[in-house]
């Protein structure tokens, strides 16, 4: 019987930042979409840790100590996975 690997579990837990739960820490796994260059310039890059502070039409998150307001449409292009303590 095949066992799920850590990688499989991680892929299962991938979600967009827009869907992610408020108040939790996540790691950015991928940036997919037309707005990702804009995001990269502002510091949204793969492997960085992000904390979602508020949801809504524009969500608020903290990356490297900077608070950013990001439209939910743009947040859909940020794929994250939860950070396990």
């Amino acid at each position: 019987m095949a066992h799920a690997t850590v990688q499989d579990l991680e892929i299962d837990s991938l979600q967009s930042l827009a869907q992610a739960q408020v108040g939790c820490d996540f790691r950015i796994r991928a940036l997919e979409g037309p707005g990702c260059e804009q995001l990269r310039h502002l510091g949204f890059c793969e492997t960085l840790q992000v904390r979602k502070l508020a949801g809504g039409r524009n969500l608020i998150c903290s990356v490297c100590g900077t608070r950013l307001a990001v439209s939910s449409a743009l947040a859909e292009q940020v794929i994250v996975s939860p950070v396990t303590p």
Partner: peptide
Amino acid sequence: EVKSHFLLELPP
């Protein structure tokens, strides 16, 4: 032509 999204830094 290229859709722009709201993205703003909230300084301390």
